[in-house]
Design a protein around this nucleic acid. Structure first.
Lengths: 144, 144
DNA sequence: ATTTCTATTGAAAAGAGTTTTCAATAATAA
DNA sequence: TTATTATTGAAAACTCTTTTCAATAGAAAT
């Protein structure tokens, strides 16, 4: 059993919630999709394998997964909520193509430093940051 | 007359659009509010001075201002579209307080460098970036 | 000035995505 | 097995954004 299921089990227990087939199946489908999925994306994926699971349950389960720390709500500025895998994934930033919408996950330890410098300067206690770099990707450049 | 009105005039002309009282008044109110306003925020401000101007017109005028380069649509992740002054304002990043929602505009030339390094690494041609640093501000820290 | 043409306006409706409601059902403890 | 109550799914309600459409008002031509 993947570690993620244990984490979710513990979260469920600690909150006094209940185990359900739906929740397990939704977590399973989420884990097998290594992308940034919206509720609707995930609902469609879930539907393929488990047609009886409703949209609302997917929505609510994703909120629980967020709370449990297994995923994180991200925002690419298109007003659609997406969920990113969090367990076993280092913090990273995004390089987003404004032509095709594809993105690359990148790491830059330098940003951590900037975060700290800014924090000191303005007496903030910082918790996290989000850096999105926009541009045109290799593929889209070729197409021209 | 502020330079912004000239820019807007030129934009209007170049697009074959028309001058209207409403558009001028909305731009005027926007310029006098040095904050990040949502359409609704701005509508309420406009309403105070010009009660006959409708929400839709405010909405549409902000789209025009964005096109003309006088403002930029920004996104603090709360699914509300906000507009930031652009003319006469350097690019900056945000230090956002997760307690009170207030933010500080900060500059960090280092991020530009990171952007370029990332670009080269992944054969991207980058156009811009967006860095939001989250944390707890001075004021909120004191309140504890 | 007046007429003509058509961009603009504001109210209302439509969209799009998110969140809540509620009766039926299913998970857990007794 | 029974009792309790969290969960589910469909539908409705919300919230913010965008479009529609008939009436109005700019701007150009007369």
């Amino acid at each position: 059993m993947r570690k993620e299921f244990q984490i979710f089990d513990e979260f469920i227990k600690s909150k006094g919630l209940r185990h359900t087939h739906q929740r397990n199946k939704i977590l399973d489908v989420f884990l097998s999709s290594e992308k940034h999925v919206s509720v609707d994306d995930l609902y469609k994926l879930v539907k393929k394998e488990y047609p009886d699971i409703g949209y609302t349950t997917v929505y609510r389960t994703m909120k629980l997964l967020s709370e449990s720390g297994l995923c994180e709500e991200i925002d690419f500025g298109d007003s659609i909520e997406r969920f990113e895998h969090k367990y076993g994934h280092e913090h990273h930033d995004h390089l987003i193509c404004i032509k095709c919408g594809r993105f690359i996950e990148v790491s830059s330890p330098e940003v951590e430093k900037i975060q700290e410098v800014m924090a000191k300067k303005h007496s903030f206690v910082t918790t996290k940051h989000k850096l999105d770099i926009f541009g045109i990707c290799k593929g889209c450049l070729k197409k021209r």
